[in-house]
Simulated assay, not measured.
Amino acid sequence: MKSINQFTITIAMLMVIAMLTQCKNIPTNIPELFQGEKDYRRNINILFDVSNSISEKQLNSYITAVEIAFKNLGARDKLSIGVIDKGSYSDPASVLRVDLLKVKTYDDLPFGYNKKVISATDTAWAGPPFHRPEEMMEANGKARMEKRLEHFKAYALPHIRPMLLRMFAERKPYADRSNILWAIRNVQSDLEKDESKLLLDHDLRPHNYLIILSDMIQTDDEISFNKPMGILRADAEQLLKRIAGANQLPALGGANVICLGRATSSIIKTEEGVQRVADFWTEYFGSKYTNGRLVAYESTDKSDKLSDWLNEWSANK
Rank of each mutant, 00 (worst) to 15 (best):
D176R: 10
D176T: 13
S178N: 04
N179T: 08
N179R: 05
I180L: 10
I184K: 02
N186V: 09
N186D: 12
Q188T: 12
Q188G: 11
S189F: 10
E192V: 11
K193I: 13
K193Q: 13
E195F: 14
E195W: 15
K197A: 14
K197Q: 10
L198H: 10
L199Q: 13
L200C: 11
L200G: 08
H202M: 13
D203F: 15
P206L: 07
P206W: 04
Y209G: 01
L210E: 04
I212P: 05
L213W: 02
S214T: 02
D215S: 02
I217N: 09
Q218W: 03
D221K: 14
D221I: 12
E222K: 14
E222Y: 10
I223N: 00
F225Q: 01
N226M: 09
K227D: 09
K227H: 14
M229G: 13
I231G: 01
L232Q: 12
L232V: 10
L232E: 14
Q238P: 04
L239P: 00
L240C: 01
K241R: 11
K241F: 05
I243D: 00
A244Y: 07
A244N: 12
A246R: 15
A246L: 15
N247F: 13
L249F: 03
L249Q: 03
P250N: 05
A251V: 13
L252W: 01
L252P: 06
G254F: 04
G254N: 03
A255K: 06
N256I: 13
V257C: 11
V257Q: 10
I258T: 08
I258Y: 01
C259Y: 08
C259D: 03
L260Y: 03
G261C: 01
R262P: 05
A263F: 07
A263K: 12
T264C: 11
S265F: 07
S266A: 15
S266V: 10
I267P: 01
I268R: 02
I268V: 09
K269C: 08
T270W: 06
T270K: 08
E271I: 11
E271A: 13
E271W: 08
E272A: 13
G273Q: 05
R276A: 09
A278N: 05
A278P: 01
D279E: 08
F280N: 00
W281T: 00
W281Q: 01
E283F: 07
E283T: 12
E283R: 11
Y284L: 00
Y284F: 03
